[in-house]
């Protein structure tokens, strides 16, 4: 059994890393990053099978693809604190000559990143390709991916969703961050997608909800349940119900912090709510 308390402490540090990265350069995307902090920590610290070090091919290990690349602060924090690159490098986020670009990329050779993302809607196709290669290679490890809910408005997703079911790509677990927010407002207001579950199911996916998407125990349990559903002829989708900005009270339940950095005072408030557990960079 995982030590949920340890994982939650890890999340507290990741939240600090997120707001500190964004604050330092007065740019970046804290809202979605905070909402997915528990998911990333669960994935990298508990659920995914990972090899030591990093190689692009990732044979013999699980892979993860971030499709909604703008939540790079949480990705970078969890990668650094999972040993992919020095934690101090978080200091370079979005700065000139950095490997930590505004949106994740392979271009500067940052370990842990396997594809550039930022222009939305492309990650599921990439994950499917990697999953098909795993099958060709006789590699029975899994491919995980994360997508924003607003991002589902990009049509390429539905090409990929259709392909995955038709071709029984059952070694993939695609998670949708259902925070209900996008830049211009709530997803319901901007472009109401109706039932995301019904859509995935209609396309032939096995769908499960993690209703408490910011509850570590619920996430670990949900990911393990998803894992048990792989290899059964259907791609697996997790609908992760999260709260945007989770863990920083004034950033929660709003799209206002989608792409906005806290000022000095707001940073102090955010940090006060999230104790330093692993040591600040």
């Amino acid at each position: 059994m995982p030590n949920i308390k340890e994982l939650e402490d890890f999340v507290s540090q990741v939240r600090r890393d997120i707001v500190r990265q964004v604050h330092q350069v007065s740019s970046g995307h804290p809202g979605g990053s905070l909402g997915c902090a528990e998911f990333f920590v669960a994935l990298y610290q508990e659920v995914m099978k990972r090899k030591e070090g990093f190689d692009m091919d990732g044979k013999g290990e699980d892979l993860f693809f971030l499709s909604n690349g703008h939540i790079s602060p949480v990705f970078y924090s969890v990668l650094a604190r999972s040993g992919y690159f020095p934690v101090d490098e978080l200091n370079t986020f979005r700065k000139i000559d950095s490997r930590l670009q505004g949106h994740p990329t392979t271009h500067e050779g940052l370990p842990g990143i396997r594809i550039a993302s930022g222009s939305l809607g492309q990650g599921l196709s990439v994950a499917l390709g990697a999953a098909q290669t795993k099958k060709l290679n006789g590699d029975d490890n899994l491919v995980y991916s994360l997508h924003g809910d607003g991002e589902l408005q990009e049509g390429q997703n539905w090409e990929a969703i259709m392909y995955a079911a038709a071709n029984k790509v059952d070694n993939i677990i695609a998670t949708v961050d259902l925070n209900g927010q996008q830049i211009d407002g709530s997803t319901d207001d901007v472009l109401n997608m109706g039932s995301v579950r019904a859509k995935f199911e209609a396309f032939g996916w096995d769908v499960l909800d993690i209703e408490k998407g910011n509850d570590m125990a619920a996430i670990v349990e949900g990911l393990k349940e998803a894992k048990s559903r792989t290899g059964k002829g259907k791609p697996v989708c997790i609908l992760l119900h999260t709260i945007m900005g989770n863990g920083v009270d004034f950033m929660m339940y709003t799209h206002a912090w989608h792409g906005k950095a806290p000022n000095d005072e707001q940073l102090e408030k955010a940090l006060a709510q999230n104790p330093e557990t692993l040591g600040d960079y």
Binding site: K59, G121, G123, S125, A127, G129, A130, Q132, E159, Y163
Partner: peptide, 21 residues
Amino acid sequence: QTGIAEANMIGMAAGMTIGGK
């Protein structure tokens, strides 16, 4: 065979390189 879905085809092709194809 990806069907009439070129965007997905290109993305899949990119993903398939990961693992050496």
